[in-house]
Amino acid sequence: MTRWLMRRRVAAWLIFGGFAALPLIAAMTGDPYLVVVATRILAFAMAALALDLILGYGGMVSFGHAAYLGIGAYAVAILSRAGITDLGAHLGAAVVAGSAFALVTGAISLRTRGIYFIMITLAFAQMAYFFFVSLSAYGGDDGVTLAARSTVLGQDWLADDRVLYYAALAMLLGLYLLCVAITGSRFGRVLTGARENPLRMQAVGFTPFRFQLTAFVISGAMTAIAGVILANQASYVSPAYMNWHRSGELVVMVVLGGIGNLLGAIAGATLALLLEEWLALFTEHWRLIFGALLILVVLFSRDGLTGLFRGRAK
């Protein structure tokens, strides 16, 4: 076990080191677009990380996590329209709104298990999607273009793509360290135990529901933070962020990277978005190739990308 923790630490240094060095590489190759793409990757990595917390550790397959991306993005759009442009306020509003939506929908969804849980989280996300589609004050289906990015201390530092990139990277690192702490804590042990055998956990005196709901709320809040970054990266917010395809893509990212080890989610999001960019250069039917790759990964490595680095199963 400790060996596995050592490997994870090395992998974390490599991944975050690589991200930190990326703008330098972009500057050397003279490709500023790379930083823009990478910021998008960081936002989705946050969302995938949040999903892995409940999917990988809690056994809760949420098929509606895109809703939280949209909630975070609309927090930026709505507050900016009202003249509040501060990043801290945007993040605060996103976390509060994401937590509230997760608390209400999670409390209901967690009454069910398995396929019903998947369906009910999907249904709630679709309700959120159609709510924003019909919100004509914010462009309805078309969405809204942001006048400017969020500000920090009244300054428009984030207008520089590289500053936004490093801000996103710092947030991803913070959320990753938060998840490492949570999953290794007393709380994390109960969450994982409830996935392994809920009856056993009740038989030693735990009520799994309270722990699962708490994790669900934490995950929702984290994904809303990813939405704030996404809105800033695109300077544009629309209901498309909350589309159920998007929820499916988040699940794919987690599975592709390997569930239940946090770094896998980050790696999966990175690989999925890079493949999307790269394969799209060759053919408009890139999804076909992507699908085939996903099948291969799932068939040959239960643990996704991380399985390739972990060596043979015990």
Binding site: M1, A181, S185, R186, F187, T192, N197, G205, F211
Partner: peptide, 29 residues
């Protein structure tokens, strides 16, 4: 039992159920 947990983890999880709050998010268990 909790098949994916170690033997010690199985038992210390049960101890934890009686040992105060499990809403502790940071200290490594």
């Amino acid at each position: 039992i909790l098949p994916g947990f170690s033997v010690l983890e199985n038992v210390s999880t049960a101890v934890q159920a009686r040992a105060g709050s499990s809403f502790r998010f940071f200290a490594p268990v």
